[in-house]
Nucleic acid binder design. Sequence first.
DNA 1: AACGGATGTCAAGTATATTTTACATAACAT
DNA 2: ATGTTATGTAAAATATACTTGACATCCGTT
Lengths: 70, 70
Amino acid sequence: MKNLRLKLARMEKDMSQTELAKRVGVTRQTIGMVESGDYNPTLNLCIQICKELGKTLNDLFWEEDDNEMV
Amino acid sequence: MKNLRLKLARMEKDMSQTELAKRVGVTRQTIGMVESGDYNPTLNLCIQICKELGKTLNDLFWEEDDNEMV
DNA sequence: AACGGATGTCAAGTATATTTTACATAACAT
DNA sequence: ATGTTATGTAAAATATACTTGACATCCGTT
């Protein structure tokens, strides 16, 4: 399950995966994997991404409904 | 920096670290380290903890600090 | 006193997040 | 046709999250 909210938030900031990665301090592959889903990033990475995109953890990483698939 | 919100939410549920750990599927040491702070858990672990305690990611893991909305 | 449950911590092992390097395609210019 | 930017993906290496097992203290109970 792709993280479309993250991808959208990044695009709204006119930021490439490479640029977001640089700001966050990881590689672009890592950002790509987070957006692609099927991935379990660390909390600090999520927080850094949120801060760069002006969003909160709930905005980008909290599933409100009962979409399981952990 | 200790995660006091997590500790409080757990205690409000009358749950020991051991019991929360069992429900979440990790060891009690891991829960202890998350509560002690200075630790970087994975997103899935945070989500599982939130679900067991009836909280959201922002409730337990988002620092509102100086980033107030514009 | 002795017990049992809850928590803190530490060292060594295992699992996995993240990096590095590399090659691939598509879109859009020049 | 050539070059550049953006993205997807995949192997192997490294860093670190998480486990295992142990020993510690504190606190309430018997």
